[in-house]
Write a protein that binds this DNA or RNA. Sequence first.
DNA 1: AGGAGTTTGTGAACGTGAGAACAAAACCGG
DNA 2: CCGGTTTTGTTCTCACGTTCACAAACTCCT
Lengths: 228, 228
Amino acid sequence: MTSRPSAEPRDIPEATVARLPVYLRALTTLAEDGVATCSSEELAQATGVNSAKLRKDLSYLGSYGTRGVGYDVAYLRYQIARQIGVTQDWPVVIVGIGNLGHALANYSGFRSRGFRVVALLDADPSRQEEVVAGVDVRPFDDLEAIVEECGVAIGVIATPAAAAQDVADRMVAAGIRSILNFAPTVLAVPEGVDVRKVDLSIELQILAYHEQRKSPHLALTPIEEPAI
Amino acid sequence: MTSRPSAEPRDIPEATVARLPVYLRALTTLAEDGVATCSSEELAQATGVNSAKLRKDLSYLGSYGTRGVGYDVAYLRYQIARQIGVTQDWPVVIVGIGNLGHALANYSGFRSRGFRVVALLDADPSRQEEVVAGVDVRPFDDLEAIVEECGVAIGVIATPAAAAQDVADRMVAAGIRSILNFAPTVLAVPEGVDVRKVDLSIELQILAYHEQRKSPHLALTPIEEPAI
DNA sequence: AGGAGTTTGTGAACGTGAGAACAAAACCGG
DNA sequence: CCGGTTTTGTTCTCACGTTCACAAACTCCT
């Protein structure tokens, strides 16, 4: 979202990268159901994308399909995982163990998809006695030590908005170069650091925009226009 | 994400719609700080976008700036809120009161940004005794009654993946036409229903992809390639 | 062995979005 | 009242993403 590192081998478009995890999940489900092979049409249905788009996406990874047959589920699944980089486990730190931090720490989807929560950090001493999801909450000041010790490259910010920029600065200084930000703030980070933002109320507002246009809604402007 | 309703007045590009809430938040902050006027350059800095892009975005709403001066913060803020549709309060139901549902119910950002959680629903009877954020958890079967009674148009799904499609079907049948889905599944919904997806592990995987290309990472393929 | 039927991979056309650049419009100081 | 300065609104160009359409390639059945 901030800067794009120069990719070496084959340059995969950003839009494609964003869809690869979706394909990966669908393939995992298919594999669990014992499906050995699937066509681009089937996979497209399962993931809700156009089949031509899907084929083009996969073609950036290489030619892993067989014409007239389709794709080998296990093999394609592995190739996508390798491209994304989730064949290895990524250590992750979560900062801010409030409601959302709790939910994130307990989210089993991380572990099963190539991520391992190695530390939970919070500046509030009263939270540092807790143990969440088998990991004990440690003081935020331990950040640098943990990053060093575990080789953490990815940080998750689940603090209030006011604290987010400070946390980000400390993370960057500690060597973290990829940040997933749940705080409703725009983060300023140096070149070479990637930030992705997840914002709950923005998503709702986008829905509201479309919803408003669906029905000629009853009340038009219940709140007063401010005087200029 | 599924179907686009035909917009009547001026058609605002989807990319612009996604940025309007960001501008809205920045303007709110500026207003709270007592700033009366700001230029496109200042607002662009605060939101992390290109100033030309920002001006183009705002031009879709109308000509609300003054050349040589900039934008009136309060006035622009109102105009954006009106376009998005958050001058009125949107009633919202949350289904699935697990870790994430708790966090969502407690998230104060909803209330302050045009949304009101009118009901928390869960199929598990043991959860139905709880009171979360001042709202008591009710059985999922109350969905239709609540939607009818409160005029709910937006639903949030925070259930496990396995239950999500059923919940979505019930929501659609009850009259909900906009769904924010936190479950890691692709939802199938009829034409005219909007679904937006928020997926935590997908965001992390996208970060992992870029992270992998930043450093020529030590271990390349620690997991075995499956035999074909 | 060969033809019919499938399904991939990709070239080409189209649409959308981003950013540079600039003219038009407003304010300000003298 | 007028020239200089600032900043918006918009046009133009380029890059990116999506979709169609089809040839190439593979399997299966006779």
